[in-house]
Design a protein around this nucleic acid. Structure first.
Lengths: 356, 356
DNA sequence: GGTGTTCAGTGAAACGATTCAATGGCTGAT
DNA sequence: ATCAGCCATTGAATCGTTTCACTGAACACC
């Protein structure tokens, strides 16, 4: 094979052997300079470093990893890289990982099990130190097989089912309840829930919370309408809103709870486009409290999660799994409702069946 | 070392050798099944596949890479992972890379040269097939050394200086001009430019475009005020807006051109918070046209770039660098001004020195 | 002078895959 | 019967690093 290289590229990569020869020392000494510089005499160290610089030596990480048996990377698999919630989580992960000298391989499963499992295979082949993942709906069997192979896994934004694994999540039932309580308290009697059809438990729990609140305070749930778009994006949020707008005024919800902020922004856009006044004619509550929620056309009321902190904590747990006295932890953060204009309808308007 | 493993983890990783033994064939045959399955007899292939499944064999990518000399990854280094512009680019890159069977290592330099060079070192050690990068201001010498080492580099959202490299960029001078022309045409006579102080050429070119437009149409540039926050985020956008709001009404700009949409959103927020009506008292134009621009409190006029397409094209160029008849290309896309409400001031209000 | 202890430095033996020249068996042509 | 040609298969050599048992040299101590 050895496809011929263009002339200027000849000195492709010096190996540790070349460095040793150039510096007039042995292989082992070069390796020591690289890994335990203080155990090497000052003069040889100088010579080795000089040789490294002259030859532009760059350590071959594959070889290092093969021999040492341990990699310097960690995998992060998210559901939607375009959702700022996940990039915020990623920044948290990155902070901790970098401090520990690890690189993060960021993978975007797009909520598709096939993409997810392809990425997990890849991460396994790369022998990453561990995997942080917000899995698609059915906790893939791949996860279990990763763990069986000794690769630690920490779930992010998703509660572990058993005690045998770590997870960093948010009490989504509470989150859903907060959103619903808030709206009910402000007099809403017909509410829509815009969730997802992919069956993510996070989303289902948010719905559970909403239902619970509605049950307690209404005694019945006849006015809770549910929309389940394929994916949770701005575009599908718009579609859901179009449906809502199409409903006869007598049954049309006066408030919408969205399973995430992207949906909420979509709903808001479509309402605005059709002249439905938010929050006067329809209130909106989002979820995640991404930064853009506050900057929306009508600033969004949203359920706040500690996004970056979640990433940091998850990464710490993952690193901790390497230690022998590690015990699995299921962290659950309490979400907080941040009330903004999108749900501040004047009580008179929102209350009941349009007064008359 | 060989730190003792917990019992259930014993069968950590079967090697190709174990598979061979189990299947009763040689090493080479297993490798062939993995890499050229059609050159292997049907029955041995069956047996090997069975053994792979039973032993839960996962190829060790480090070993593969060490021997084969070629990796299956590519690096993408962006300035700000929290900026949706870059996640859109990343999706484009991912599309192309996945189709080619490559994984993407996504790195966030945070516009800090030290982080950037640390990541470049890491990518070099990983022997990635190539690097896509939006570099920090001073095209780091690291880039040149990567290229000298035979690792292809493609610049993203930044024009290559010489013909010796590929780049995918946007005509930012034109972009700046479009923004300024639009505002000038609408009667604005005092404009602010909110850029960045890090010296990114993309930003400087946008400024150049603005200045050119102003020169041509005004004959002088006395009313172009420049703000240069440290970084280009929503938060610094707010700060710039606070300064603008603090200016005496007689000299306060009636329109703001922002170097990206995050800044624009920040400016918009702060204006709204202080009761400055957008666009009536102050128009705003952003840059990049991220999805959230259209969803803003006042939908943002913005300079649109083909974000995902840029990522795709860049990745294609990178893959093409491997071929021998590759010629370096500098792609320049034409930006388009998307006019929305944030710059639709009623002409009477916007025009001139407040009529009276 | 012998003995013991440090300290630097050495180099062979892994790690787990891929590659490639060599081997052996078979088919069909001569 | 022989041989060329083909195919599936083999296994040793190799990639670039780390590790570790080992060698000398220098020094201190009795």
């Amino acid at each position: 094979m050895n496809r011929p290289r263009r002339p200027e590229e000849t000195a492709l990569s010096a190996s540790i052997r070349d460095v040793a020869r150039r510096a007039g020392v042995s292989l082992g000494t070069v390796s020591n300079v690289l890994n335990r510089p203080d155990q090497v005499g000052a003069d040889s160290r100088e010579r080795v470093l000089a040789a490294i610089a002259e030859l532009r030596f760059v350590r071959n990480e594959s070889a290092r990893q093969l021999r040492a048996g341990t990699s310097r990377t960690l995998g992060l698999v998210v559901l939607d890289i375009a959702n700022p919630f996940f990039t915020d989580v990623a920044r948290g992960v990155e902070d901790v990982a970098n401090d520990a000298g690890l690189a993060v391989i960021l993978c975007n499963s797009d909520d598709r099990p096939t993409k997810e499992s392809a990425y997990l295979d890849l991460l396994a082949e790369q022998r990453v130190q561990g995997v942080l993942i917000t899995p698609t709906a059915d906790l893939s069997t791949h996860l279990e097989s990763l763990r069986r192979r000794g690769i630690p896994v920490v779930l992010v934004d998703r509660r572990a089912t058993g005690p045998g694994q770590c997870s960093v999540a948010v009490d989504d039932v509470l989150g859903g309840r907060l959103a619903a309580d808030h709206l009910i308290q402000r007099g809403h009697r017909r509410i829509a829930f815009v969730g997802g059809s992919s069956g993510l438990p996070q989303i289902q729990e948010r719905y559970t919370g909403v239902v619970a609140a509605v049950r307690e305070q209404w005694g019945a749930e006849e006015s809770l309408t549910v929309f389940a778009p394929e994916v949770l994006t701005v575009a599908t949020g718009r579609e859901a809103a179009a449906q809502i707008i199409g409903m006869p005024a007598a049954v049309r919800p006066t408030a919408v709870i969205c399973a995430n902020d992207l949906l909420a922004l979509g709903v808001l856009q479509e309402m605005t486009r059709h002249g439905v006044r938010v929050p006067d004619e329809c209130s909106i509550v989002g979820y995640d409290d991404i930064d853009f929620a506050a900057a929306a056309a009508v600033p969004l009321t949203s359920v706040r999660k500690p996004r970056q902190e979640m990433g940091r904590r998850a990464a710490q747990l993952l690193l901790d799994e390497a230690s022998d006295e590690h015990v699995h932890e299921q962290i659950v953060y309490e979400p907080v409702l941040v009330v903004r204009e999108s749900s501040m309808a004047r009580r008179s308007t929102a209350r009941g069946e349009r007064t008359a």
